[in-house]
Write a protein that binds this DNA or RNA. Structure first.
Lengths: 229, 229
DNA sequence: ATAGTTTTCGCCTTCCAGTTGAAAACTGAC
DNA sequence: GTCAGTTTTCAACTGGAAGGCGAAAACTAT
């Protein structure tokens, strides 16, 4: 009976150069040497998986720049790592746009829509992370983790477009976020670019904890009308 | 360095007697002997976690009656099981109402809103399962896993009410599910009860695979207008 | 001034959730 | 057979939020 190990892995996503990118490092050792893989490592004996992934990520990026970390899923196919029995807890991590954390030599950002050859099942994990991000952008305020502390609506529109993979309307985005009470004007404006134009107002996110907007009110009681806890 | 083990656990939920209940068994051995705990067991060396939980559940309930199984999260606090280092992959399982699977002697159903003393962190897992179910009832067709193959709108309303914890409108429920194309009339009707009333039409769910209804169209393009994959 | 650019705002349309009330289809009692 | 009671079903209305469009605002450059 082979030894069962537990590793933690994170798909750290950031919008850079107008596209959604993921932090990968090039494996030096076999198996899958030379391929790109997710940062992570073995779960320690006295830490939970979230503590562990934050600790391991600290070797790759400045963890203070990680605006959000959440569990994705367990990946546990018996031979996902050839020759070993390793179960992985996968995480989604988000770094706000604009930051450019220093990363080690062997580590780099890659477009999620044009991944290089990845090690093991890491591509599936990245895609799962992207899907989670896309869903949550719609019904939570997760955008705060993708955006810099202060931003214009146009900039936010481009972040959302890059993350979602399709153009979004700036008008609509602003109205929707505003109605949910997530958007706060700072009062400042950004001077227009060299080609002119009206100066853009600057906004910030009102809440930085995760807020979910109930997807459908479909089945909600009109007033307090609970029938059981 | 203590040995790291991996277990799989499932909160199997069913609506019975008009309330959401969970399948628990009474632990015989220390630690936490006498407390109620979730079915599950050790992850085998040549199975993934989903295969494993289905295998382990087969000892408690007829797995053919499990209409849905999905990963919940990893529970990995260092001392969640005293004296051992055990990481748990937690699952949500659903059994359609109406079925009454045979269960072993030491196993029984318990109301989720009135749990007995549970072992370890199993109460947290059950509550997480309930929350997942409640969310997904709103924006997926997960109801199919809670409902019998054929049902009346009133019966479905009571299932939803029990699972969600508040009364829902039958009118609304029917319209919403119908618009999403999830509800199919069978053509049959159920004869009314002893106190009379119009006979209720019978319906079934159109799709049994999981379908998600995009929570918010907020940021969706009007037509195909993709900007990148 | 004028043309061009970018942001912002208001108005309009459409769609869907939620409410209400009445009609339909049965039972049992008189 | 009719009438009252019960339960299901349907149709109409209301309110709110998303999405689209175009005009107005606020700049730069010529």
């Amino acid at each position: 009976m082979s030894q069962l190990a537990h590793e933690v892995l994170a798909a750290v996503l950031q919008v850079r150069e107008n596209s959604l990118q993921v932090l990968l490092w090039r494996r030096g050792r076999e198996p899958d040497a030379g391929r790109w893989s997710l940062p992570g490592g073995s779960l320690g004996t006295s830490e939970d998986v979230e503590t562990s992934i934050r600790r391991q990520l600290a070797e790759k990026v400045d963890v203070r720049q990680l605006a959000h970390v959440e569990q994705l899923a367990v990946f546990s196919a018996p031979h996902r790592v050839p020759g070993l029995r390793v179960v992985a807890s996968a995480f989604l991590g988000l770094v706000p746009a604009g930051l450019d954390p220093e990363v080690p030599e062997d580590t780099d950002w890659h477009r999620v829509d044009a991944l290089p050859e990845t090690a093991f099942d890491h591509e599936a994990i990245v895609l799962r992370a992207r899907n989670r991000l896309r869903s949550k952008l719609s019904y939570t305020n997760l955008g705060f983790a993708l955006a810099p502390p202060v931003f214009t609506i146009s900039a936010l529109r481009e972040l959302y477009s890059a993350a979602l993979g399709y153009r979004v309307s700036a008008t609509n985005l602003q109205r929707v976020l505003a109605r949910r009470g997530l958007l706060e004007p700072t009062g400042d404006t950004l001077p227009p670019g060299p080609s002119g134009g009206r100066p853009a107002a600057l906004f910030c996110f009102a809440e930085h904890g995760m807020q979910v907007t109930d997807p459908f009110a479909v089945l909600r009681p009109p007033s307090a009308d609970r029938v059981s806890s």
